[in-house]
């Protein structure tokens, strides 16, 4: 946790330093030329580690510099699930079912570069360490035998790469963003797997 705090402070410091490099004015590109931005988004996520597709939603809060660089923190949440049936001679009946819910709250400080030279369209790409706060719930699935849920929690750090496009609309911009993320997970419930996923979200970004 201390490691995460240190990284966040460092990124914010870097962001503040970059803000001093912002330039002069022209037609507002995307959500804006520079300033504090707030983004809300929702979409779908396709995990690569074995869990099923799920909904993902999140918000970004950052500051865009005049020179195209932007800094911010993104928070996303998703809860992919998985279930199955297995054979095990130790269990009465020889089989059991299981159901896994993998709750993931992700926080990612990021740095992003916005290409403002395309007018109302502002493509951007970013990168940042992704902090996964994981919570696995595993229990029996429907039918017998049934057993209660066991909860398992952990925190992991991964990486996220947002790639998006701002399209000026109203006071802000509509965005479409493809987020590529990757992180490890090693719960007893999950086994040795990862949180790698691709998510595609739509949202709206305001810049002040």
């Amino acid at each position: 946790m201390k490691q995460l705090i240190a990284i966040s402070v460092l990124l914010l410091s870097t962001t503040a330093f970059a803000a001093d490099e912002s330039g002069g004015s022209r037609e507002r590109p995307g959500a804006g030329e520079k300033g504090v931005f707030l983004t809300g988004k929702v979409g779908g996520i396709v995990p690569f580690g074995g869990m099923g597709p799920n909904v993902i939603g999140g918000i970004d809060l950052g500051y865009a510099l005049q020179n195209g660089l932007a800094f911010g923190v993104a928070a996303d949440y998703a809860a992919p699930k998985q279930s199955g049936t297995e054979s095990d001679t130790r269990v009465t009946g020889g089989t059991y079912t299981w159901h896994l819910t993998q709750q993931m709250l992700q926080v990612m400080p990021f740095v992003m570069f916005r290409i403002k030279s395309m007018g109302t369209l502002v493509p951007y790409v970013g990168i940042g360490p992704r902090i996964y706060m994981l919570q696995s719930f595993v229990r029996s699935n429907e039918g017998t035998p049934s057993f209660q849920e066991t909860r398992e929690t952990s925190t992991r750090i991964g990486v996220g790469v947002p790639i998006g496009l701002e399209l000026k609309a109203g006071p802000g911009a509509v965005i479409g963003e493809l987020l590529l993320q990757y992180g490890g997970i090693k719960h007893l419930a999950t086994g040795n797997s990862n949180t790698g996923a691709a998510s595609l979200s739509l949202g709206y970004r305001l810049m002040f």
């Binding site: 929690t153 490890g184 090693k186």
Partner: peptide, 11 residues
């Protein structure tokens, strides 16, 4: 972050 072992775990 991608290759970090993570922090705490609890069951």
């Amino acid at each position: 972050g991608a290759f970090s072992p993570g922090c705490s775990e609890e069951k």
